[in-house]
Amino acid sequence: MMNHPETYSPSPAIAEEDRILRTWTPLMLRTVLIVSTIVLITGIAATVLHSSGFYIERFHALQKGQMHATEQFSTILRQAAAGDPHAIMTIGLYILTLVPLVRVAFTFVLFLKDRDYIYVAATAYVLSGLLLGMALGRIG
């Protein structure tokens, strides 16, 4: 955003990388954040309007340590499409959670485009570590 070539001039490759990063990453982040926020607020609004009794019941059940049963992703999608507030909120949470993984993947493509192979390898290592962790079900 602030370029002062008279004081410091990075190489063209780095300047280009910087431009892409500063333009596209915030745009991507903002888009995903806005989408997930809209979905989450829709879910919360639907809860307030249509099932506030259910929400209070759920909250008290949670305080007693009763979790919601695990559901298939396809089931959640179907329920969300049918207007179930809980399913809509869950979808919003999924969208939000994908942000950092998409950012690492985005970084991978950027380094690949730059033919910056040390960083391509490093990013690939991070991505495969994350996928392995998810597969093992134990990370973070």
Binding site: T37, L62, T90, G92, L93, T97, P100, I139, G140
Partner: peptide, 26 residues
């Protein structure tokens, strides 16, 4: 990055309570 992977695992195990997590996330 690290928390994202963890959160995905929690979500897919059904360990995230949307009633609490949704307003907290917002």
């Amino acid at each position: 990055v690290t928390a994202g992977a963890g959160a995905l695992v929690f979500l897919s195990r059904g360990d995230v309570a949307a009633a609490v997590a949704a307003p907290v996330a917002i």
